[in-house]
Every structure is written in structure tokens, then in C-alpha cells.
Design a binder for these strands. Structure first.
Lengths: 257, 257
DNA sequence: CGATGAATCTCGACA
DNA sequence: TGTCGAGGTTCATCG
């Protein structure tokens, strides 16, 4: 094993013994560092569901906020994980390492409500690192549904000429409508926004809003439902036609706009 | 900077220069290793949406399958990422490092269909590691919707006494029904399964199935729709009542069952 | 390849 | 705290 002392923020052990790894991991958890461990391990999870994962090489991350991630060499998603807010502890059987074939280092993460437990049992550890993280910057994102809503409010004619938004997030018996307004003839208009190509679910949603409002408002009121999105699937287009609903093609704004 | 040569599978540089880091990163990408970099960086993404993230300490992972993950010290989800199948390259301005304030190391990940680009621009690198991963084990999970389906097929009386499953995944004009069967009186029964508490969407789905089957089958057939899940939201319960649909509380099996 | 629906979804917002 | 809906959702499956 060898120790690397880097600038204040990084402590790394390469090819440590399990005892050394255990100490380094406990230390990192204690100090609120970002902990990473690479080694051969088996993983068991029990909680909302249950899973077992046999031995293999994996990269394990424990964040100071209580998150645990177990990654293999494939996939974007971790093969096992624990959400933020969990408690981590390191367990190491203190038997004589020389002839104990059962020597094992375990990282255990627990949570309550719901009760969940993740156990990462290391046969061997190739590297342990502890990082002191100073971030502080927040992400700024464009192109979301919120941006599309702002775009419609800025330029209501994108939905149709004469459209007038009145309220956003208007409550109905079926939930909150994205944009509530009226058309050039004074008819009530319900707008459902989707930032990308929409399927049948969105039509069902819009349909429920229109029905709810027709019950809420005077029985003689005409309520139009317009689905605003970049495009629709064929099945959704047929559902719209069946229900007398409409579609208006609008793209969410791109970065520059 | 110092170099660590570990057993075959791990190569790590601590506090490298940007040139050294660039070489190690390119080497790892070339060899199909799991690459991790910790350092101060800014991140820009442009594709399905756009985002910018100012300078800060982050942990960056590049997997041999083309996945890229940028993690901060908080959250389970990466702050930026690229899905599997992307192409990575390392760019390093080869200016004289001495007086060039603009010296920069960039990890660029691109993808097409849709066109997306992620750029991680490092001001400094604290550690670079390359791991040769040998996994090979696959995850086995219980508690899924498939498990719930099996539970119902094993014990149909959990839905209601006398219920008889006939077909799973039966096709209708509105999509495939989870379980199609009949009750003690010989009425057609459509069962929609959800492994957790359900909201209005599932009711809409079940409702579409029942409507479609009433059209498909003889006009005189009675089609019952039963939503099977651990629980329902209040709004969904009202929607069920409105539409003459039913609910039956069943938990998905836990590990031991 | 696109379309569909599940997920230990995660995450933020709001009652 | 629970509920609700969005997401650069991701992911597997199916046509």
C-alpha cells in the first residue's frame, strides 16, 4: 500500500489492506468528504424492493449528503444506490487477517421511512479516495416546460391568433391547468403544455381538465382544449380528434432566445 | 505530481499538471478503462436542452460504454451527464503553460440523434484514475410489477374471491391489458396492476381499456375494471367512483415471498 | 428506428 | 410530511 498526500483536498490510498481501507473510509465519512472506493465487492439491497449482486469490480461513491452510488463499467444509472439523507457506516471484522479467509470490509447504508438498507461487501479494495469539495455554483438550464410556458405568455399568438392567457396553474377538480385563457371570440381555452412530442397520456390529462371545467363553469360555456407541444404521436392525434380537442405546434425556446 | 502503479487494474495520478492529466485521460479512454477525474471545472451542455455551470470542484466519470457523469457533493443525480454511446475526446491547448492564463483542459463528449454536446473545462485537476473493470455479475431484483403480476396469477383471490385470470397482456385498441379474466358470475374483468400508490393516470388508462373492450366485445357484455395496487390517491379514488371502476388493495411481494 | 410504459425512478413545489 | 407532476428523465421491450 502507498499513501498519497495531495493538497489539502485529496487523500488517496492505492492498494490498501482492508484494515487501512476501513480506516480511510471511516475517516472520510467522519469529515464530510466525498468518498470513492474501487474494488471487488458484492452488493445487497433491501427496502422498497430487494436485490442481490454477486462479486465484481465496481466504483462506489458516498457523498456527504448521505447518497451512495454503486457503478459498474456500463450504464448511466448506478446498479445500486441509496438516496440522500441515508446514514453510512463501515464494518470490518477484526479477525487475524493472515489466515482468515472470511475477512470482509462492509459499507452499510441505512434509511428509515421507508426502511431501506444497502450493504456493499468488499473482498478487496484497489483504491480509496476522499475529496473535500467546494462547489457553490448552481446550474442554469433552458428548454424546459417552464421556459415554454414563459414563451407562450410572452407570445400568446403562437398558440393561435387572438389567444389571451388569463391565469397559470388554475385549479380544477382534475388538477391544475397549465394555462387558462380565452380565444378571440371569448370562449374559455385550456392549454396543456409539453416540451416534447406527446403521447396519449397528455390527451387524457387535457380531456380531464376540459371536462372538469365544463362542469365547474356554467353548463352553456364552450371550453376549448388545446395541446401545445412540438409534435404528437399518431395515436394521440386520433384521440384528440375523437374528443374534439386541438393541437398547436410550438417549440420550447432554445438557448439564445 | 506523483504516479501510482498499482496491480494491473488501476492507474492513478495525484495533483498532475494539465498536460499530464490530458495524457492519462486520453490513455484511459483509449484503453477502454473506467476514467475518473476530480478537479475544478466549468460545464456546458447543449442538446435536448441547454445548460451552463460555473467553475467548482466536481467528480467526473467516463465509462467505457460512452457514459459521462458529472457529480457534485450533493444529490443522487449527476449535475450534468451524457448517456451511453457517446464519443469522448480530450482537448488541451498546447500553449506555453508558464504565462498562458488561458491554459485549459477539456473533456468533450458528443452524440448524434439527437445532437448533443457536453464540455467539461478543467482549470485544475487534483486526481485522475483509470480502472480496468471486470464485473460479469447481473442484478436480480424482486418487488417489481412483474412480481406483482406473478403473485396475482398464483393467488387470484387476492383481487377478489372467484376471480379467474385468463390471459395476460391481452391486446385492445387502447393498448395491452395487464390481466384479462372473469369474475365468479362470468363477467369480463380487466385488471390494471401498479406496484405502488396510484394517481389519476392509472385510472385513465384502466378506463380506456374498459371502453375499448366494451366496443370490441358484444355490446351486451359487462366489462368490469379493477385497479390493483397497494393504495390510491384521493383524486384517483373519486375518478374510479365516477367511472364505475373498482379498486383492490394488493402489495407486491417482498423478498422472502 | 420510434413508441410505449416501468422505475428502489429522482427532484422540487406546494398544501 | 405527503402528494403531485416534470425530467436533457433512463431503461427495457415491442412493433
Amino acid at each position: 500500500m502507498s499513501r498519497e498526500r495531495a493538497g489539502a483536498g485529496v487523500r488517496t490510498l492505492v492498494e490498501p489492506t482492508l484494515s487501512e481501507a476501513a480506516a480511510a473510509m471511516a475517516d472520510a465519512l467522519e469529515h464530510g468528504d466525498l468518498l470513492t472506493v474501487f474494488g471487488r465487492c458484492a452488493v445487497d439491497y433491501d427496502g422498497r424492493a430487494s436485490s442481490t449482486l454477486g462479486p465484481g469490480d465496481r466504483h462506489v461513491t458516498a457523498k456527504p449528503d448521505g447518497t451512495v452510488l454503486v457503478h459498474t463499467d456500463e450504464r448511466q444509472q448506478p446498479v445500486n444506490w441509496q438516496p440522500p439523507g441515508c446514514s453510512q457506516r463501515v464494518e470490518h471484522g477484526e479477525g487475524d487477517a493472515a489466515d482468515s479467509g472470511t475477512d470482509e470490509l462492509r459499507l452499510v447504508s441505512t434509511r428509515s421511512n421507508p426502511d431501506e438498507e444497502l450493504v456493499v461487501a468488499f473482498e478487496s479494495v484497489r483504491q480509496v479516495s476522499a475529496f473535500a469539495v467546494d462547489d457553490g455554483e448552481t446550474l442554469s438550464l433552458t428548454g424546459s416546460e417552464e421556459d415554454l410556458r414563459q414563451r407562450i405568455l410572452d407570445s400568446p399568438e403562437l398558440v393561435e391568433p387572438g389567444f389571451q392567457p388569463l391565469v397559470t396553474e388554475r385549479r380544477t377538480a382534475a388538477g391544475a391547468v397549465d394555462i387558462f385563457g380565452e380565444d378571440a371570440d371569448g370562449n374559455v381555452v385550456v392549454v396543456e403544455l409539453k416540451r416534447k412530442r406527446v403521447g396519449p397520456d397528455a390527451v387524457g390529462q387535457l380531456s380531464r381538465y376540459v371536462d372538469a371545467l365544463e362542469r365547474d363553469l356554467h353548463a352553456d360555456a364552450t371550453v376549448r382544449g388545446i395541446l401545445v407541444a412540438p409534435s404528437v404521436t399518431e395515436r394521440a392525434r386520433r384521440m384528440l380528434a375523437d374528443r374534439g380537442l386541438e393541437f398547436s405546434a410550438v417549440e420550447p425556446p432554445s438557448d439564445g432566445e
